[in-house]
Structures are given as structure tokens and as C-alpha cells.
Simulated scan of single mutants.
Amino acid sequence: MNSQYGLEVDLVQNKALGAFLMFRTVQAYEKNEKTNSGCPLLLLFLVLPVLYQKDIRNALKSTRINSGLRKFTNKFSSREIKETDVLLRVHDLADSYKKLSWASFILASKANMLAVLPDDALVVSHDQKIPRKYECPSIKPMLTGADKLGAWFAKNSLYEIASNLKVRF
């Protein structure tokens, strides 16, 4: 990824980390979704824009998984944060992260972490255990965030997700 911000951003916002985050999101989705049908592919294009942005990730970090997506998005209009524009950026961020998200998804597919059910454009995870040694402290907040996103995505319709995160599919 050629970034205007340099090598540091490229090292952190890379497709391997993105693939791992997508894998964790899909696993959390499957764990929380009742019909066990798979995660809609469209939702994976929201994972990196949310988790790679520090201000969004910080709000995500301070929201409990049981609180849900609406509580998370309501934080941006609360008195403490007062950053409603952050949510309005998610759609544009998803567009700018599209190539990286796709590259991450392709890598996760090639690494046999994720698979697509082409008839329904649903993504399922392969039953894999990633060794804990790869969960280094510096990415732990992102992994926890991926787990929250997957759980919240599973409990909401595409319409509710789009409405809460201010995105268009």
C-alpha cells in the first residue's frame, strides 16, 4: 500500500493484519448469529475503516459488547466525545479502504481462514485456531474491536447497520 503518510502507516495498516481482523469479525459473527448462515461480504468492508481509525477504535474500546451497535454510535453525539462528524466519515473511509479491504479478504481466503458462499455473498470462517502468540499486545484492542463488530453485526440487519454507521451499501 503506497501511503502519503509513509512506511509507518503501511506497516500497521497492512493486508495481513486486515485479514486477521476480518477473520476474527467473521468468527464473532458466526458465534452470535442465530441461523449460522454466514456473514454478509459487504460488512467486511467496514471492519478496517472502523478498526484502523484511532478515534473510532477508542470509542469502540470503551463500549461493552453487550451494549450493542446503537450505544456505540450514540457515543459520538454524547457530551464526552462531541464528534458526530466521525460517524459521517465512515462511508468515505470505507471507500478509501476498499482496495486494502479487498486485498485483506483475498489474503484471508488464500490462507484458508475465510470462504465465500457465492450464491448468497456470505462469508464463513474455517475452523482454525490462530496461536495466541500472534495476538501481541499492540493489536489486542483491534482484535477485541473485531470481536465486538462481529457480534454487533450479527445482531442487526444490514439496514440497521447502515443506518447506525451512516453508510450506504
Rank of each mutant, 00 (worst) to 15 (best):
N2I: 12
S3R: 10
L7D: 15
E8V: 11
V9T: 11
V9W: 09
V9P: 00
D10C: 04
D10I: 10
L11A: 10
V12H: 13
N14L: 05
N14I: 01
K15I: 03
L17R: 15
G18F: 03
A19W: 07
A19I: 01
F20T: 04
F20P: 01
F20G: 00
L21A: 02
M22S: 12
M22V: 05
R24E: 15
T25P: 05
V26Y: 14
Q27L: 07
A28P: 07
A28F: 02
N32C: 13
E33S: 09
K34C: 11
T35G: 12
N36L: 11
S37W: 00
S37N: 06
G38I: 01
G38E: 10
P40S: 08
P40E: 04
P40F: 06
L41C: 04
L42W: 01
L43Q: 02
L44M: 12
L44D: 08
L44T: 14
L44N: 14
V47N: 06
P49H: 10
L51A: 06
Y52T: 06
Y52F: 15
K54E: 10
D55L: 04
D55S: 14
D55M: 05
I56D: 08
A59S: 15
A59K: 12
L60S: 03
K61H: 12
K61R: 14
S62Q: 09
S62Y: 03
S62E: 10
T63E: 10
R64D: 14
R64P: 01
I65R: 08
I65V: 07
N66C: 03
L69K: 04
R70Q: 12
K71F: 02
K71S: 15
T73L: 00
N74H: 07
N74D: 14
F76E: 07
F76G: 07
S78V: 02
S78H: 02
S78Y: 02
E80T: 12
E80G: 08
I81M: 11
I81Q: 13
D85R: 08
L87P: 00
L88N: 12
L88P: 00
R89G: 07
R89Y: 03
V90G: 03
H91Y: 07
H91F: 04
D92T: 09
L93T: 08
L93M: 13
D95P: 00
Y97R: 01
K99S: 09
A103E: 07
A103S: 05
A103W: 00
S104Q: 07
F105N: 09
I106D: 15
A108T: 09
K110S: 03
K110Y: 05
K110E: 14
A111D: 10
N112R: 11
V116E: 14
V116G: 05
L117Q: 15
P118R: 10
P118I: 08
P118E: 10
A121L: 14
V123P: 10
S125W: 04
H126W: 13
H126V: 09
D127H: 13
P131K: 06
R132T: 13
Y134R: 04
C136E: 08
C136T: 11
I139C: 01
L143G: 05
T144F: 14
A146Y: 01
A146M: 03
K148P: 05
L149T: 13
L149H: 12
L149C: 12
L149F: 12
G150R: 09
W152K: 06
W152E: 08
F153Q: 07
A154D: 11
A154I: 00
K155A: 07
S157F: 09
S157L: 09
L158R: 05
L158T: 13
E160R: 02
I161G: 04
A162Q: 14
S163W: 00
N164K: 12
L165V: 00
